[in-house]
Design a protein around this nucleic acid. Sequence first.
DNA 1: TCAATCATGTAAAGGGTTACATGATTAG
DNA 2: CTAATCATGTAACCCTTTACATGATTGA
Lengths: 170, 170
Amino acid sequence: MSLKHALLGLLSDRRASGYDLLKTFETSLANVWPATQSQIYTELTKLAGSGLIAVAAEGPRGRKEYEITDEGMAELRHWLTEVAPQPVNRSDVLLRVFFLGVLTPEQARAYLTDLMEMSQSGYEQLRRLADSIDWDEGNLSVYGRIALEYGLRFNAMRREWAEWAAGQLS
Amino acid sequence: MSLKHALLGLLSDRRASGYDLLKTFETSLANVWPATQSQIYTELTKLAGSGLIAVAAEGPRGRKEYEITDEGMAELRHWLTEVAPQPVNRSDVLLRVFFLGVLTPEQARAYLTDLMEMSQSGYEQLRRLADSIDWDEGNLSVYGRIALEYGLRFNAMRREWAEWAAGQLS
DNA sequence: TCAATCATGTAAAGGGTTACATGATTAG
DNA sequence: CTAATCATGTAACCCTTTACATGATTGA
């Protein structure tokens, strides 16, 4: 149910077309809540149908700019304050760890060192992103920076864990 | 596609019925790859149909005990060594952070302190779990302990981050 | 003029959740 | 005998992915 709220959240900041929103999903939300073009357009139509957003303007090439309605803002606030976030997130990466015993120790160690590298480059990529953004004083900046810090800490934690885990296989 | 591999992975350790596997999903895999009863039975039927597992024995109450086939083991190893784990995991918890600006600072801080508590109790729960398990020398133990350590480090990281983030709102 | 980009929409298939449905066996 | 547990299966609905399909506008 969160694609709906991701769209409401983005539209609470500024009006945007499906195309604009798609670009945002490909960049800032890519690591948190990926969504495809197909999914976004379908969901926008549904949201407009239920009155949570509305077409504010039309532009060239059939462009439709959506804005959030009062009802939509109420739904967004309701989700943020009343609906418990689901505590569990599936992790493909971690699931595999349970079954590394079917591989040779060398293969298992290779999996963990690959994870180390993946985490390291994820960290560096976010670090570069952080440096390239000019953080103004807006709310989106404040919370965007907080989310980015999460990503940095997560990657650092995972790198250290993978390093430790590889060391355990001896 | 990973429910399939989770089932193959569990069956690579020992034979089990759908009911047995369901219990395992409710306990050890609950925080990594949750699955419902409905999903498990459906997937087992499909896996048996494609020859990756087979019915090894039948018991009372229609119980069917499955075992992994050679083909299934090959598929499991292929997944572990050749298929890249998907690097992105959707996070409901983090998505909300992007939109905390629509709330009052008090509400936003409340969200973050709730996260701190959630992470803290998650940490303690895993700590208790770690103490209650008798870690024998088997492979599943080795890698189960490594996965559990990940959970501990993840919760610790998230608690510290949420604490830091709450402090940023000033 | 032509390639890149902007812009939207739909269909099919797969995976996950919730709910319904049934019945056998065992322990007290 | 009766409640708890064991045990399986199916249907409907929702969300996600991949693919197909189309066309307008802009910049070089």
